[in-house]
Design a protein around this nucleic acid. Structure first.
Lengths: 261, 261
DNA sequence: CCGTTTGGTTCCATTATGTGAAACTTAGTC
DNA sequence: GACTAAGTTTCACATAATGGAACCAAACGG
């Protein structure tokens, strides 16, 4: 939330430090971390020791820098496998990718942001962690808007409060009001577009993945470029996209579904 | 040394619990977790609350189960990007995959086990988290043996002590003695084979990725099947594999982060 | 229906643990 | 050789974790 409240005790602080290290997107020096957080020297030092000990961080003795550790990659693999969405969606994404020849994204909502959990890339052969786990804005991406549109009021407000509404392109919906109007349209038609709102030349058509009870558990998109296709052509696929999203939703529900953040 | 009993205080315990949840490969009930760890009810309960609060776990209210949370996926992405190996190796893997048409693995050593950090799959189009983050045994895989062979003595002993030496196939080197002999041969020729030691029909040729000072930072392999090729044919590629491994090693070592210009 | 078990949540006195200012030790600079 | 920045250790103190026990709520069973 805007005004950080609880630190959840010692564990919360340790996790905050992990985030601090993650935010600095290159390995960080002790002093950099000291500057970028509210922790006193000795405290920070002890935490870094503990986390390094635990394999959550790695310490490069030569450079005196800390980076996130491999234990996280291991845990994330388990998280992915346990997730009620990504493993189930896997074969469907393959199918859709083969069928469309376009880039496919699978995303979830995480703290008001879009978190990509899987991807099929039209152009290159494979990219793995390089792409999954990436986060993006919700208010100006297809998957983001598709999910926002089906969020219950309270959750929506919470999420909207976290959007930056930065004007990435001329098409970006850069006010809550404009976005809300768009969300209503999305709710009505059941799918969302990205009309070059995030990056120039990039367009997409996205559908939310819902449980039968109507809860959003993720979103699915087919992405392309204005050079290769048009929004109208993408919309022709919307029926199919929604069909796949519905199937994933149904299968995910019948299995197990974790509470969403 | 060996098996230190330390839990690294509160943070260590919290992380132990994450591991416990990860080990149960389906969402776990409170009682299951209670049974599978040394924690008293109240303590476990508090930890689960905190971790859920922090997004490291998700709680499914309907089923009363805990699973690993999305925050881990996010952190793992950052870990991958910050790593001095995987992002650097990316283009080389693409190149090698295109060139050989075979499956490529990139692995690191983690607690005596092989941790796969990237992959190019010959057959299917793409699998992301589904494959990366996976762990495997060191003593009976090409990448594992390639890394073990170049480990300093003390680290090798540590790693060997953690091997199960389970006899997966008739070809598995199932004693430390046999493995040590093999490691010497690997050291001599600079590359390792997997002669169907882990899975029948699966063979590979692997090379360690070393820094100039000789420290192992990972390994690279080209994997195939006995149906498609032979070990001799794979060995013909060994020169190229070692060349790529050497380039990755050199680049990983020389890479300085922006500020150091 | 009511006693009992199972599975989960809350209390709270006790003390182990984490805390952080300050002192200390390098390593680097002028 | 004095000065500064960066990292490490100490230690008196108080916060925060601990876990036994009590509690609650379903499900079970007789």
């Amino acid at each position: 939330m805007g005004s950080e409240g609880h630190t959840d005790g010692t564990v919360g602080k340790a996790l905050d430090i992990l985030d601090m290290v993650a935010r600095h997107d290159r390995p960080a020096r002790f002093s950099e971390l000291l500057a970028s957080g509210p922790f006193p020297k000795a405290t920070l030092y002890r935490f870094l020791q503990t986390l390094t000990n635990q394999g959550m961080l790695t310490y490069d003795a030569d450079r005196g820098t800390y980076a996130l550790g491999v234990r996280l990659v291991r845990l994330a693999h388990a998280a992915w496998s346990q997730s009620s969405l990504a493993p189930i969606a896997l074969p469907y994404l393959d199918e859709l990718a083969a069928e469309t020849g376009e880039t496919i994204h699978l995303a979830q909502m995480d703290q008001g942001q879009v978190l990509y959990v899987d991807k099929r890339n039209a152009a290159r052969p494979v990219e793995m962690f390089a792409q999954a786990g990436k986060i993006g804005p919700a208010y100006c991406t297809g998957v983001g808007k598709a999910m926002l549109a089906f969020l219950p009021d309270e959750a929506l407000d919470h999420a909207l409060a976290r959007q930056s509404f930065h004007r990435h392109t001329d098409h970006t919906l850069d006010t809550p009001a404009r976005l809300k109007a768009e969300l209503q349209a999305i709710r009505a038609r059941g799918h969302a577009f990205d009309r070059e709102e995030h990056e120039p030349g990039i367009i997409c058509c996205a559908a939310p993945i819902l449980t039968r009870s109507g809860r959003v558990i993720g979103a699915l998109s087919v992405t392309s470029t204005t050079a290769r296709t048009t929004l109208a052509a993408l919309e022709e696929r919307s029926g199919r996209i929604k069909q796949v999203a519905a199937r994933i939703g149904a299968e995910a529900e019948s299995w197990r579904f974790p509470e969403q953040g």
